[in-house]
Amino acid sequence: MPKVDTGSFHPLFWWLWALTILVILLVADSTLISFSVSLGAVALVLLKRSNTYWYQSFRWALRLAALAFVLRMAIGVVIGVPMPGQVLFTIPRITLPDLFVGVRLGGEVTSQRLSTAFDEAMLLVALILIFAAANALSNPHELLRVLPRRYYAIGLATVIASSVAPQSARSIQRVRAARRLRGKKSTGIASFRNVGIPVLEESLERSIDLAASLESRGYGYFPNPSRYRPHIWRFRETLALASPVYGLIFVLLLPALSGVLLACLLLIAVITPGFI
């Protein structure tokens, strides 16, 4: 048998890890836990740093998370229903036509409203970072090989979806460099046309090429595909996946545990696979 790559986890591992943490986040519904999970995801990616292009995409995910946070906070401050609590400051209210009953623009911003917005923004950040971490740590090409080949369309869609972000991160650098050659520095929103469109077009083109290549090599057409270098789910993966599962059990069974302690435990549970 060809040598099995022992350095990395099974291609599905990080996605299972992300799903487990997703459940934790939804069950716990606590800002402190969202925060500790986000922190854990960033630490984990830094810990497993590699020079691969799918890793490079994490930088863009950080920006996306920051953007999501800012947007959610801004919406929380500007739009919303009246909420009780101490009034922190007041922004001028804009009266909307009767069509938008119950929606308010501006008005009094209370502590309650601000903290709700903050909770939801943190949850959003945690979700983005967890899936970005899974994306940054697993190799999209390897994923293709472990998905059942009979479901051609599913495999293809998954691979294209999971490789678009990392490949685009790479294209952005290249297209940006090329844009300077056309005498245009690209910054801000104006750069969308100059950099965004070519990058999107390129990722579309690459996806079509990849699909054509898979198709012309018989992917998904023959009943019993075989494996050259099988990916084996070893004890190592089970061990590493055990830590977020324990995290989930803590959250489910020990609601009485103090928030800070639980957050610390979860931080450890998120990072542990990085050391296995």
Binding site: R149, Y219, P223, Y228
Partner: peptide, 14 residues
């Protein structure tokens, strides 16, 4: 792995 891909799809014995 790239070279083996086509064979895997056709289900050739390892």
């Amino acid at each position: 792995d790239e070279i083996a891909f086509g064979l895997e799809s056709l289900g050739i014995a390892p």
